[in-house]
Amino acid sequence: MLDNLQLLFVYAPIMNVQMILDGIFVGAVFALIAYGLALVWGVMNVKNICQGDMVIMGGYIAFTLYQLGVHPIFAIPIVAAVMFIYGWIIYVMIIRRVIDNDMFVSLLATFGLSLLMTQVMNLIYGPEVQTIDSHFPIAMMFDDFVTIPMVKIVSLALAMLLAAAVVIFMKKSRMGQAIRATAQDARAARVLGINTDNIFAFTYSLNAAICGVAGVLVSMIWVLQPFYGIIYTLRTFAIVTAAGLGNLPGVISMSFVLGWVEQYAGIVAGAEWQVAASVLMLLAVLMWRQVQMRRQRQVVR
């Protein structure tokens, strides 16, 4: 561990450039998925355990299109549309029935859905790891030490574009306003003539579409396997819990923090700590919050 720190800061400080860049690229993809999760969680109070599986599903749809000769970048709108419809179907079939029940019912329902999706993808695509070659060039800097695949920059740009679009949509459009109103108080929104059932369906579908797009980016940057969904679910839960619901800047900054924490944990403590680091980070944030709140806590007699 000490020699790793020495390597990082004394012998090859240039490594930091790679780490920070990688952290940003990783964080951008996470931010997308986490924002979708925060949306569903905040508006519907449904903890969507199949979040990661929707990401992988989006990736596999892009993979299928890729085999048919569609470049993944052009596959994005198709995947978004397909996933939107899929989200709507899932909402009508499952989520609508559990939304008014307590938290554990929705947890169980989406967990079951996650298992189902994993196995169906496994049946269709098999457990082999699949990748998509986007044929983008790879830039090398600092004497070939730092590698920046163009596909990661493109993904970062796309993630930012999509995030901005979603934010503007939520702020400006009629539907966005209705979603925010429902999130604040579903009952009051209903009284005021908002069809909350529609809003819920739309929110869930929007999340599915966002996951799908993130999945296309994942398929271009990393690899796809039917069983990889759970790590995306885990990471985004850590991000959203740590950032707090309804805190968009928090979700985005936390995503980048998580990206960096993972990269540095991988270098300093070894790859086996990379995923563990995100969970440890969540734990640290929760403990810190607990301490902070205790200071302000008053006993009601």
């Binding site: 030490f145 270098i267 790859a271 995923v275």
Partner: peptide, 19 residues
């Protein structure tokens, strides 16, 4: 390095390798 079973990214290990 020991890779977790579901790790789809080993760039940290490879960056170290490059250094």
């Amino acid at each position: 390095d020991k890779l977790p079973a579901d790790l789809s990214d080993m760039s940290a290990t490879l960056t170290k390798f490059k250094a």
